[in-house]
């Protein structure tokens, strides 16, 4: 469990990025921080592994105050995946994945063996192991980034807009992959995005942030969709535009779901998977 206790962050310039922020992030669940640009998502995420230290307040991991932990050691036991993968351009795929174990003095051969298995885990062909990051597609780079984040077998995985820079089709693929991985691996995932659909898809707990890191609403996707707490939330999730209100309309080829504007949004199926009667 990760807990933010009245955390405030003011950067040297004077801007108050996060003010009196408190949140409980449950273990073995995916928590998504979602909010528009500048709302402090990255800052919050980086306070967990002490890339950023809070001005005041406390962050606890399983009851331990992180301020008392050594930052480098802390980071090596927390996976970190960022936008544009953040891979080291001068290392091959396999060495990128093995980075943290090697820093932790795992023998190189062993680390590379483990890294190959991780490539399988994230769905990458082993033939890519000796390529450099620049020789991969954006989607493949992100997979390598995820593999690297998992390499030290951390309990916590921090992901900062990891799928922000890939095209929608690849993004959907990576999202599905992450859902699959999460059922297998059972990590505490903290995921940052500004895409509300991605947040609802991936999050067990979704945290909607306003400017200044203020929490507009915390809850499961169902809770937030069924009862937006404020106008801000309603606008943010698109409920005010009727984007989230679907109704059934009959068409010659069968029933379809349409949104408030009458645009087709999908088809209705029953839970067994067949078309609804």
């Amino acid at each position: 469990m990760i807990e933010f206790c009245s955390v405030t962050k003011q950067f040297p310039g004077g801007t108050l990025v996060v003010e009196d922020f408190s949140l409980v992030i449950p273990s073995r669940k995916t928590t998504v921080l979602v909010g528009s640009s500048g709302s402090g998502k990255t800052t919050l995420l980086r306070m967990i592994n002490r890339m950023v230290d809070p001005t005041s307040g406390r962050i606890e991991i399983d009851g331990e105050d992180t301020a008392l932990l050594e930052p480098v050691a802390l980071r090596r036991r927390i996976g970190y995946v960022m936008q544009n993968s953040g891979l080291l351009p001068h290392l091959t795929v396999i060495n990128n994945v093995a980075t943290v174990p090697v820093l932790n003095r795992v023998p190189k051969k062993q680390a590379r063996q483990d890294a190959l298995l991780l490539l399988d885990t994230v769905g990458l062909d082993r033939s890519l192991a000796d390529r450099y990051p620049s020789q991969l597609s954006g989607g493949q780079q992100q997979r390598v980034g995820v593999a690297r984040g998992l390499a030290a077998d951390p309990n916590i995985l921090l992901m900062d807009e990891p799928f922000g820079a890939v095209d929608p089709i690849v993004r959907a693929e990576l999202q599905t992959e992450l859902l699959r991985l999460q059922t297998e691996l059972d990590k505490t995932v903290v995921f940052v995005t500004h895409d509300i659909d991605e947040a609802f898809l991936l999050g067990d707990q979704v945290v909607i942030l306003e400017k200044g890191g203020r929490i507009a609403q915390v809850g499961s996707p169902t809770e937030i969709l069924s009862a937006p707490a404020t106008d801000f939330v309603a606008t943010f999730i698109g409920a005010d535009r009727g984007k989230r209100e679907l109704s059934i309309r009959s068409s010659p080829s069968g029933d379809i779901l349409v949104d408030a504007d009458g645009r087709a949004a999908g088809v209705l199926i029953d839970s067994a998977g067949g078309p609804a009667l």
């Binding site: 980086r46 592994n49 890339m51 480098v72 050691a73 980071r75 090596r76 970190y80 960022m82 544009n84 953040g86 891979l87 080291l88 351009p89 001068h90 980075t99 943290v100 820093l103 690297r148 984040g149």
Partner: peptide, 25 residues
Amino acid sequence: PDVRQSASGVGFSGRSQFFRVELPL
């Protein structure tokens, strides 16, 4: 700077980041 951030984020210490990331790059 993104590469630096990412290196420190995954747990390079100041010294190892200098010799294994910044100097080679």
